[in-house]
């Protein structure tokens, strides 16, 4: 049965293997060439420290200009691979059998429908996930070599960085694959399943990208109104922020705006240092006692990834159950 499934998906599996080999080669080459460039520009120290502390800012800028495109392409690759798995491996898996009627051959042998389906699913999905994880690991390996000179400086929660980290890509790939197979058995047309699968995946992937944040408990960080909270700088995910009144209740946004506006029009006149101080002193007096922010710290990113995988993985399980149900009822 394993040979049977392998033989029927030979093309996809060979393509995956090719992708992996090319990926390993290309990323290893690019990474070593990037490391050379870092050493030759004496940027080694800047990889681990914030950009503003870098001793050779000119060289750092030139480096970023040279390498930001290739690094972005690598990140996009990991973002796109799940969709490709769904379109080229998930969608045709059963759709082609139904379209060409060959499922009749399979259903009239002694292997049960469930076993036939499972072996096809496993042979299609497992190698795809292995390749995806390998590529993800390679890209991360490359990105970490660039350190703060590369895209990692933007923090774990920027869309591109989040989408390629931890188990999230696997969650997306599971979902894309399951969506492809489900649309395949429902539409019974390979091309329809491929295009509809791609569309639906993109829509759901972006529609749900905000949902995950609300599933992880946030921390409230508070501070005086005269200084910006550090969470805005340190890569934490800020889900809500604003001012608290003396009772510790958040002040509605239009009220905040009105109060700030009122403080700005103090008699001292605009633009002077005194007016700035006066403005800051005015805020607590007019009722904006504290600043607050509801955040998820960068160190809590793994929780968000887990929630992400739970959402997309859960959807994938539902879709695969749907696929099985439709196939078993097939007549």
């Amino acid at each position: 049965m394993i040979w049977a499934s392998w033989r029927q998906q030979r093309l996809q599996l060979i393509t995956l293997l090719g992708l992996l080999v090319v990926g390993v080669g290309a990323i290893a080459l690019l990474r070593s060439s990037m490391l050379d460039s870092i050493t030759s520009s004496q940027l080694t120290a800047c990889v681990t420290q914030p950009l503003q502390d870098c001793a050779v800012p000119e060289a750092a800028k030139a480096f970023q200009e040279e390498w930001s495109n290739p690094l972005d392409m690598a990140r996009l690759l990991i973002i796109c691979v799940p969709a490709l798995i769904g379109v080229f491996i998930g969608a045709p898996l059963f759709a082609r059998e139904l379209e060409q009627g060959t499922y009749v051959l399979a259903f009239t042998q002694s292997v049960s429908r469930t076993r036939w389906m499972l072996s096809k699913l496993v042979i299609a999905l497992v190698p795809a996930l292995v390749v995806l994880i390998a590529l993800q690991y390679l890209v991360t390996w490359w990105l970490s070599a660039a350190g703060t000179l590369g895209p990692l400086k933007n923090g774990a929660f920027t869309a591109l960085n989040f989408g390629i980290a931890h188990a999230s890509p696997v969650g997306y790939a599971l979902f894309a694959f399951a969506l492809g197979t489900f649309l395949g058995v429902v539409s019974r047309r390979t091309l329809v399943a491929m295009t509809a699968g791609l569309g639906a995946f993109v829509v759901v992937r972006f529609a749900l990208s905000g949902l995950v944040n609300s599933l992880v408990p946030t921390q409230r960080v508070e501070g005086t109104p005269d200084r910006q909270l550090t969470v805005h700088e340190d890569g934490s995910l800020v889900l809500a922020d604003g001012y608290l009144d003396t009772a510790g209740q958040p002040v509605p946004e239009d009220e905040v705006n009105a109060l700030i506006q009122a403080c700005k029009t103090t008699p001292a006149g605009a633009g002077t240092p005194e007016s700035q101080q006066e403005f800051l002193a005015c805020l607590p007096k007019s009722g904006l006692a504290k600043q607050y922010a509801d955040v998820i710290g960068e160190s809590q990113a793994w929780q968000v990834h887990l929630a992400d995988v739970a959402i997309f993985g859960g959807l994938a399980v539902l879709l695969l159950a749907g696929t099985a149900w439709v196939l078993r009822r097939q007549n």
Binding site: A4, Q8, T102, V104, L105, Q109, V111
Partner: peptide
């Protein structure tokens, strides 16, 4: 219904794998 991209020999092997 037969898998057109398989050879006759492969198809026979495929069916062998799907039968007790």
């Amino acid at each position: 219904p037969l898998y057109h991209d398989l050879t006759v020999r492969e198809l026979v092997r495929l069916c062998a794998a799907m039968n007790d």
